[in-house]
Write a protein that binds this DNA or RNA. Structure first.
Lengths: 342, 342
DNA sequence: TGTTAGCACTCTCTCTTAATGAGTGCTAAC
DNA sequence: GTTAGCACTCATTAAGAGAGAGTGCTAACA
């Protein structure tokens, strides 16, 4: 059995109507709402075929049909009209991103909020991968007696500061000297590279000041360890999920929000290592908690280098056309903003 | 009509049982569970009195009684056995706070998580009031051409960095000079004071370098504005609310979480300007969304100065004894940690 | 051969009704 | 002042009856 034009029309009708109403749809309703020029009985025959093909299914005998995961997949791949972001939405995005924003974190969290507001879905944004970014420069600043502020500038532009104990009183000059050596040796290396080999080299170079260096290495090691594990996830509009009829059951809400709380598993949803735009539908998802959800995700870049991913999460019954258009537009816009900053 | 010893015993029984079971409790059950030496009929008479006094109420005729807000209040003020934190819990807290933690934000968010885990309630922690903290020192560090990193150290110990445009190329020396003047003039002033009067003074002092100063003032003003509005709230264990039978209704969950999302109203819950430990029960709350909730809050200090507040939020039917003990212990512990850091 | 009308059948949803049970207030006896 | 007894109330639960939406199948039709 093959898909013909009429079957495609009917499948599209089912998907569109189900996305809009969240109710199983029957042959009679299709005939009434969509002008296909055939009677409900004919549509029924076609629907039986579509069910055999695995594209739609019945929640129970004698109810309407709903699209299966495979049905959504066919819809997304073959039936969907490519949509563009409306001018109104474009304007909102433009206006928001024209605000002067200083830190990269702010740009990201802004993006996250915007995504969820425009789609009425939950947004997931994976921040710049710290582990992959390379070391730029470090500075010491005075803080308390026995403590200094260590400011680290990475080559992707992020700036971090940490208070570190230096254990003994050191002069500003000595600190500058240490910083200078570190800066000279480490510039342009990824943090993991720094961690593995370079520290020893630096250690040799500065061996005259053993004690001072020991402390500096200690603090640096601590910071590097921190960074490698931490790769922040930004969530937005989690409450939008509660408006979906799919989550009118409190048990589902609980398990969903429990996953939201522990960020680790969310990273898997974004498939951050897959370039470009991706649509994951229902059961295609690896996490069992999200079998009933779909994810539209895409990666963003700085200077041609993929550094993170954004996505929206919603029930499989989501408006794919709209969501895809917005995610696509936002990643482009994000890439542009981040590139301009440099 | 007066409260006598037997009425007190019965009220305590009702409150304790209701806290434990979340079910309205009847005279028969009280007689069975609590050994008062009187029959259900006698208890019924007393309960009628307690209802007249407004301390308990009936959800509907012919159901058991539940404590009213006034009943909880009487229980908290007069009936409750003062509880202490168990050794087991103390150990958890000690172990957690012995971890080396660098930033004040980390200390706060740690506290928040701990509070919610120990109480199974939702924790609310109001971070140090930035508006009230006084300016310590500022530094400029090189960043990109045309941009510098502005590092601000406040006297409460927080360190912030911001990227600021300087619009034109300035030498390191010139920047140092500007920073020196700012540092000399501003040290020890609150940010709002700085904003109002001192800026003009600095402006006079450095009028030789108009352009440079204009930019510096612009960025500083921006940062000060930011800080004044931002006074971060840390929430923990919001999901614990979903386990409470009070929130088995999805509508309630929605409105509750909506309030959680916009932090502003949460600040009101903590009564951050009221020194010491506070218990707010049900309708005593100003926010209508929290009429069915109680809040235990307390302030914490650094160097004798109140700088923030922590609290737990739960249904009025919460274990007040335990919650009060933990909140009290945690604020003391927090005060101690923050004071030691200085 | 594809399309359509008709019809019996299935299954969910909702509304009604009845039974159960926990708990009360009142009265009268102790 | 305390208690036993009893009639009454009201939420909760289970069972049953329609109603409604939708299907699959058969037979007629173009």
């Amino acid at each position: 059995m093959q898909m013909d034009e009429r079957k495609r029309k009917i499948l599209r009708a089912i998907v569109q109507d189900y996305i809009a109403t969240a109710e199983p749809i029957g042959s009679r309703t299709i005939a009434r709402k969509f002008d296909l020029g055939v009677s409900p009985a004919t549509i029924r025959n076609e629907m039986a075929d579509l069910e055999d093909l695995g594209l739609i299914e019945q929640p129970h005998t004698s109810s309407g049909r709903v699209p299966s995961d495979a049905g959504y997949r066919y819809f997304v791949d073959c039936l969907m009209d490519p949509q563009t972001v409306s001018d109104e939405q474009k304007e909102i995005i433009e206006r928001e991103s024209s605000k002067r924003i200083h830190e990269i974190q702010e740009v990201i969290s802004h993006t996250s909020r915007l995504l969820s507001e425009l789609t009425n879905l939950t947004s997931i944004v994976l921040g710049p991968q710290k582990g992959k970014s390379t070391f730029g420069k470090m500075h010491f600043l005075p803080y308390q007696p026995g403590q200094v502020i260590l400011v680290i500038v990475k080559e992707n532009g992020t700036v971090e500061n940490h208070i570190v104990d230096i254990g003994e009183n050191l002069t500003t000059d000595e600190l500058q000297q240490v910083a200078a050596v570190f800066n000279q040796k480490m510039r342009g290396y990824s943090l993991s590279q720094v961690k593995r080999s370079l520290l020893h080299e630096i250690y040799d170079e500065l061996s005259r000041q053993r004690l001072l260096i020991d402390n500096t290495l200690d603090m640096l090691r601590e910071i590097l360890d921190d960074n490698e594990q931490e790769e922040r996830i930004y969530l937005g509009g989690t409450l939008n999920m509660l408006n979906q009829p799919e989550f009118k059951d409190l048990g589902k809400v609980k398990t969903l929000f429990k996953v939201f709380e522990e960020n680790e598993s969310l990273k898997k949803l974004l498939q951050p290592y897959q370039e470009g735009l991706n649509v994951t539908i229902g059961g295609e998802n690896t996490l069992k908690e999200f079998k009933g959800c779909s994810v539209i995700s895409a990666t963003y870049k700085v200077n041609g280098l993929t550094i993170g991913a954004v996505g929206v999460l919603g029930p499989t019954r989501m408006d794919y056309g709209k969501a895809i258009a917005i995610v696509d537009f936002m990643t482009r816009s994000l890439t542009e903003i981040l590139t301009k900053r440099r």
